[in-house]
Computed example of a mutant assay.
Amino acid sequence: MAARPALFLVWFTWAMRKERQVLRTLTAERLYRRRFPEHRFVFMCNELEEVALFRENGLNALFCSHNALADEQTFKPVSGVENTYDAFYNAMISPWKRRHLARLVPSAAHVFYESRLTGRQKTADLLDELKRMMPAHHFLNPHDAHRIEKLDWQAINAVMAASATGLCLSAEEGAMYASIEYLLAGLPVVSTPSIGGRHIFGDPETWLTVEPTEEAVRDGVAQMKARNVPRERVRAVTLAKVHEHRKRLRACVLVETDGRVDLPDDYGHAVYRRLNNWQRGLDFERMLIDDYHSE
């Protein structure tokens, strides 16, 4: 592809509001395009603030969150399941995820994994501390001092079905994959204020932002639980927002390729959906290859 026209869509897994991050991206693009001038980039931003900053610095930016590419056929409401947990939190074991803010929630389910940056020993120590701090909470991944087993998406979906709300407690990250999984599964979300774009698929009916205190999180969970918004309603509101992003992506690709590439007008089509690599990435890639060869 070196000498052939190509369009690359780039998304970010962390907040990109800082000037130095944008300038680093700009430098990387310029260095790359010196070698491959036929290649172009669209940077898919998770927040409008990121879009503005990228464009101010001469980068081609699109407001299209990577969470708009989540697979709604994987994460969905499950009927007939009673709430066992007041809240559910799916996140790595790391201090910046601020799990301690959920300490006063009466019952919560935690799905977790190890951060390579934190390291095994620090992860084990922090996990032990959290379990002592929140003895009424359930830490669901099979684990010991040496390993944490990841749960598959079927198991995660089952836990969400038994939970009343989803928690998002970090102050800064990217769009947070778990946040869209909550919403697609029909869980209303209780979040602290954050930078990174996880809030954009929320709605006043389905998303509550509270102060980053243990008391505020506890009260927010109780409030969202009392609202009892139907899970299918949470999902429908979310999908409407997701489709807006997919529509912008389609329009962008059509313009950037001079009309040669037109993504499907069915915004639920598989081309707009992806899974994390640890879930089913290879199957998705095979499907796209098979579709391409059949045309």
Rank of each mutant, 00 (worst) to 15 (best):
5 P>I: 09
5 P>W: 00
6 A>P: 01
15 A>R: 07
16 M>Y: 08
24 R>G: 10
31 L>W: 10
31 L>I: 11
31 L>A: 09
33 R>F: 09
34 R>F: 03
36 F>I: 08
39 H>P: 00
40 R>V: 04
44 M>S: 05
54 F>M: 08
55 R>A: 11
55 R>T: 09
55 R>Q: 13
57 N>Q: 13
59 L>I: 10
59 L>Q: 07
60 N>T: 12
65 S>A: 11
68 A>N: 06
70 A>P: 01
71 D>E: 04
72 E>Y: 05
75 F>D: 13
77 P>I: 02
80 G>N: 09
84 T>V: 07
85 Y>S: 06
87 A>K: 03
88 F>C: 06
89 Y>H: 15
92 M>I: 13
98 R>Y: 06
98 R>C: 10
99 R>W: 14
107 S>N: 02
107 S>T: 09
108 A>V: 11
114 E>L: 11
114 E>M: 09
115 S>A: 03
116 R>G: 07
116 R>M: 02
120 R>L: 04
121 Q>L: 11
125 D>M: 08
126 L>S: 06
126 L>W: 10
127 L>H: 12
128 D>W: 12
128 D>T: 13
131 K>L: 02
133 M>L: 13
135 P>H: 02
137 H>P: 03
141 N>I: 07
146 H>D: 14
148 I>E: 07
149 E>G: 13
152 D>G: 12
153 W>I: 15
154 Q>Y: 12
154 Q>A: 15
155 A>C: 14
162 A>V: 04
166 G>D: 03
169 L>C: 04
171 A>D: 13
176 M>L: 09
178 A>H: 05
180 I>C: 02
180 I>V: 11
182 Y>E: 05
184 L>Q: 08
186 G>K: 03
189 V>T: 02
191 S>C: 11
191 S>G: 08
196 G>I: 06
196 G>M: 04
197 G>M: 05
199 H>V: 12
202 G>P: 04
203 D>F: 03
207 W>S: 01
214 E>N: 02
215 E>S: 02
215 E>F: 00
219 D>C: 01
220 G>Y: 00
229 V>L: 13
231 R>M: 07
235 R>Y: 04
236 A>N: 11
237 V>G: 02
237 V>Y: 00
242 V>A: 00
244 E>Q: 11
246 R>L: 00
246 R>M: 00
248 R>K: 14
249 L>V: 02
250 R>S: 08
252 C>D: 04
253 V>M: 01
253 V>D: 01
257 T>A: 08
259 G>S: 08
262 D>I: 10
268 G>Q: 15
270 A>Q: 14
273 R>V: 09
274 R>E: 11
278 W>P: 03
280 R>K: 14
283 D>I: 10
285 E>F: 14
290 D>Y: 05
